[in-house]
Design a protein around this nucleic acid. Structure first.
Length: 739
DNA sequence: AGCACGCCGACT
DNA sequence: GTCGGCGTGCTC
């Protein structure tokens, strides 16, 4: 085999690979998945991934170039296939798909992370004897010097790296080499592992006795995993909050490891779920590798290599961990499968849940999707197993709907205030969720009605109070300006602060319940590493208090003293113009409800809403996921929405509106040419301007059987448009089954 | 995407 | 006469 077919790592859509390279004998082992530095045209050399090996090439031999070098780490062949599959499935480019499966720290041009090695020393048998002695050397020779003796003593407790030994005893590597010459220590150049910082403390826990429902679930998963030739099994683990899903995952992971197979556990953003990670770590130990963006590149690279080499066989991480190089995958868990963070919102707009299904099927691994609030898609397509009760056998808290119709002032209803007052009087804790950051979402002039908008995006600026000063901020592009004292149009100083966000609710609650402490948790307050955990920690250790925040407050923690959880504005998600609004509202209320009443004092939930009859709110109040899902599926079927159809969205954006409009219409026409019958094509519809870029969207609604044909039509239209220069300056991305 | 080649207007 | 505008084509 002398030809490597290489996909160069470039962002361009117009580039049509793969490209053939001749492998010189001197190059060493190159195989599918190898990462090569290759000359490419007149540009400076690029990195590329070998996607195929061949004996011959269509290109005449004299035109073939040779790679410059092969990098230290390559990708397993099945991940090359997975990356290319993602690229096709979401109409991206091979290069962008392959980037997903590369070792961390390998960008396009050059920067690449490498393994680090260190000198490790260990006592030999003779050395151990010498260390115990008085300075003479068994078998004769010169007496040991003072530094040599210090070195031997430092190694009595076990092997040390040369830098550790220098720190502990002040001994230099030269001394070690001398000792090695004399046969008293053995030296080896070993790969040094950069370790991820220890995950949240307090998560350490021993093995737990499973209840019967959990044991059944583990058995079902094992049976699914045993289906081998049937392609592994796919299961939905529907467990109410607190029902012990994590213990089921851990037991299933142990079973997979016992069969000699690897495990991937996907979790929503790591920052929000440190406990889950900590529990896997403390129970499965060194077998667990953690991959996430908060890790330094060095540590991430080393964790990746531990998986690649088989030293670690379990990977816990966010959506990108679905591409982890776990060997012989036997179990793939998606925790909180309803969570929106599984969807990537930039170019290969992949859905880690779909990728997981594909990967599990290819690897003949069992797939387990766990959640308290299944998505309608999963409910319909996967076999369910249930964990209907909390491990502590406490009932789910009652949910009280607070009708906000007819109310005009203030974000909090008197009933909610009374509930908070109760908590304050009894010295308990409460959680308030308001799905909006900032003080107020709008600022408007009372005399002329002027609104304050972002100069780069078509959105209203949000009023913030940062350390006393008021500022207007854009939540999309980061634009910020001081809050005006007067209207720049009419000069009026009467500016209305419209609506309420976390800052305002926190301020009101604080003044109302003083001296009860109020903690605010949103992405502003939680900015910076560890700040999120620090806020939760303060709330936890406080005698009593109120936690006010965005949806973050509904996730990944467990405070037994909380007796009231309230949703300030359930309609804010419900009114969202999207067919998933009901599903999201149901999930949010249910998740929040899971935070209340986890202790001996019981608890309740209050939901402020203008639409107490909406199915999502009604069913959430009754803790009735099955009822909600049946109704929601019926509605989706009637409207021909997923999972009874497929949506494909093509987004275009450009700084120049004319060029964008032209490109969008040409693309629409090109797509329309090849569509199967029964496909609806809508748009191009304008969307709000973002970061100075105008945007258009095409939407396709495909019948269930014609998804592939429609994706093919879109892909070929996009590829043709990209290779002609019609799309210059216009960037586009395709979203299949958007969330 | 880069990067160079190539063919036309305004400068020393 | 040359410097440089960006249209066009190519990358194994």
């Amino acid at each position: 085999v002398t030809i490597a077919k290489v996909e160069p790592l470039v962002t361009a859509r117009a580039l049509r690979g793969p490209f053939d390279y001749r492998l010189p004998e001197s190059m060493g082992e190159v195989a599918v998945g190898s990462v090569l530095r290759v000359p490419f045209g007149r540009q400076r050399p690029l990195l590329g991934v070998v996607v195929e090996m061949a004996e011959t090439s269509e290109i005449p031999a004299e035109r073939l170039a040779e790679p410059i070098e092969a990098l230290e780490a390559g990708v397993p062949p099945e991940l090359v296939r997975l990356g290319l599959w993602v690229a096709r499935e979401w109409c991206s480019t091979p290069s962008r798909g392959l980037s997903l499966v590369l070792p961390p720290g390998m960008g396009r041009g050059g920067q690449r992370t490498k393994a680090q090695s260190e000198l490790r020393a260990e006592l030999t048998d003779v050395g151990a004897e010498a260390a115990a002695g008085d300075g003479s050397v068994p078998g004769g020779g010169r007496r040991l010097g003072i530094r040599q003796r210090a070195a031997l003593r430092g190694l009595v407790a076990g092997s040390r790296s040369s830098s550790e030994l220098r720190e502990e005893t002040g001994v230099e590597p030269a001394t070690l080499r001398k000792l090695a010459e004399r046969g008293l220590v053995s030296l080896a150049q070993v790969e040094r592992r950069r370790r991820p910082a220890a995950e949240s403390a307090g998560a350490v826990c021993g093995p737990v006795e499973l209840n019967p429902a959990q044991r059944d679930a583990v058995a079902e998963i094992a049976a699914a995993a045993g289906q081998g030739d049937l392609g592994g099994g796919e299961l939905l683990l529907h467990g109410v909050t607190g029902s012990g899903k994590t213990e089921v995952y851990i037991a299933a992971a142990e079973a997979a490891l016992a069969r000699g197979r690897g495990v991937i556990v996907l979790v929503p953003e790591i920052a929000l779920t440190p406990q889950t990670v900590g529990r896997f770590r403390s129970r499965l130990g060194e077998e667990v590798a953690v991959l996430h963006s908060r890790l330094g590149v060095g540590a991430r690279y080393d964790e990746w290599r531990r998986l690649r080499s088989g030293q670690a066989r379990v990977c816990v991480g966010p959506r990108s961990a679905v591409f982890a190089p776990v060997r012989d995958l036997g179990l793939l868990v998606i925790d909180e499968e309803h969570d929106s963070s599984y969807k990537q919102e930039s170019d290969p707009r992949y859905d880690a849940r779909s990728v997981a299904r594909h990967r599990a099927a290819e690897a003949r691994a069992a797939l387990v999707c766990g959640t308290a609030t299944p998505r309608p898609e999963s409910w319909r397509e996967l076999r369910h197993i249930g964990l209907p009760e909390r491990v502590d056998s406490l009932p789910l808290p009652p949910v009280e709907l607070v009708d906000m119709r007819g109310r005009v002032s203030g974000p909090l209803h008197p009933d909610t205030l009374a509930g908070l007052g109760d908590v304050a009087r009894r010295g308990g804790k409460a959680i308030l969720m308001i799905n909006r950051r900032g003080f107020t979402p709008h600022l408007a002039c009372r005399s002329c009605g002027r609104a304050f908008e972002c100069p780069n995006c078509d959105v209203s600026l949000v009023l913030h109070r940062r350390s006393g000063a008021e500022r207007l901020e854009c939540h999309h592009c980061g634009h910020a300006e001081p809050s005006p004292r007067a209207c720049p149009d009419c000069g009026s100083v009467s500016l209305a602060r419209v609506g309420a966000g976390t800052e305002r609710v926190a301020a009101e609650v604080e003044s109302m319940l003083s001296p009860m402490p109020v903690f605010r948790l949103d992405s502003d307050a939680a900015a910076g590493s560890g700040a999120h955990a620090a806020i939760l920690g303060r709330f936890e250790s406080a005698e009593s208090g109120v936690l006010v925040g965005t949806q973050m407050v509904a996730k990944g923690h467990d405070f037994p003293e909380v007796t009231l959880a309230a949703v300030v504005d359930a309609d804010s998600t419900l009114r969202f113009p999207d067919f998933r609004a009901e599903e999201r509202t149901f999930a949010l209320i249910t998740q929040l409800a899971g935070r209340s009443g986890r202790g001996a004092n019981g608890g309740k939930v209050m939901v402020q809403t203008l639409s107490p009859d909406a199915p999502s709110i009604r069913h959430a109040a009754e803790h009735d996921a099955a009822g909600f899902l049946e109704g929601e599926l019926a509605r989706r079927e009637a409207l021909r929405y997923p999972p009874f159809s497929h949506l494909i969205e093509v987004g275009l954006s450009a700084p120049d509106e004319q060029a964008l409009e032209f490109a969008a219409e040409r693309l629409r026409d090109a797509v329309a040419l090849e569509l199967p019958a029964g496909t609806e094509l809508l748009g191009p519809a304008p969307q709000f301007r973002l970061r100075g870029r105008y945007r258009r969207r095409l939407l396709l609604k495909a019948e269930l059987g014609s998804r592939e044909a429609v994706v093919d039509a879109v892909r070929s239209a996009v590829e043709r448009a990209a290779s002609s220069r019609e799309l210059a300056g216009v960037s586009l991305s395709v979203d299949v089954d958007p969330q």
